[in-house]
Amino acid sequence: MKKSFIPPSIQILIYPTLLLSVLVILILIVINFGFSQITKQRQAMSETAQNEKILAEKEATLSEVSGTVAANANSVSLALPEDNPALFIISQLKLLAISKSVVLKNMKVGSGTEETSLLRVALSFNADGQTVNVLDFLNSIENVSPIITIEKVKMSQIGGILSADTTVRGYWSLLPKTLPKITEPLKNLSDAEKDVLDKILALTPPSFAEIIPAQASARDNPF
């Protein structure tokens, strides 16, 4: 019988020690790898749940407002257009002046100026008429669309006729150019925004005349 150099008391420990070592190494590898994978997965799940919540809220908001938002956007775009609204303002002021029995004279339009994200144009005119009518006219200016604010009024009375040398401001602003990412949250209008919207919806919009093309008709014989 070949005699081993390793004593039997050591020999008997080699196999279980080796087994235990392999087991410990395996446990370390599996725990390290497994937990890192699960942590990554939990993070992905958390992000996915967050995105899903945002998308669900967005879908609910869009479905809720889909019936009214286009009309409201149109009204607000008329109140604050993307181009210089001077022509609309002149038209609105003239219509308003006629309805209040006021005569508008010396209408002048200034050049547009930029102020933060807003652009503005100054218009000046003389509003002549009875005191009550002129004041009523000036008070009604804030009720028309596009939005007009009064900057300065100088009044003088000559022979019972009030002449108001008035300067008003009209505003416009460029439209947003990009849509946000699909996963960005989108909430419905806040109460403050709804209040502003109600105010705008109450404004008198400019009237647009639609020119209907003439029907084709038989030509008269020129001879």
């Binding site: 000036l138 401001r169 602003s173 439209l175 502003v196």
Partner: peptide, 29 residues
């Protein structure tokens, strides 16, 4: 389309708020 309209509406409303925040002689009138 609805999303575009809502974003446009929001943008306009925020600008309108800026307009109303400006001083104006309307209250004086």
């Amino acid at each position: 389309d609805t999303e575009s309209s809502l974003i446009l509406l929001r943008d306009r409303l925020s600008k309108v708020k800026e307009v109303y925040a400006h001083d104006s002689a309307d209250k004086n009138i």
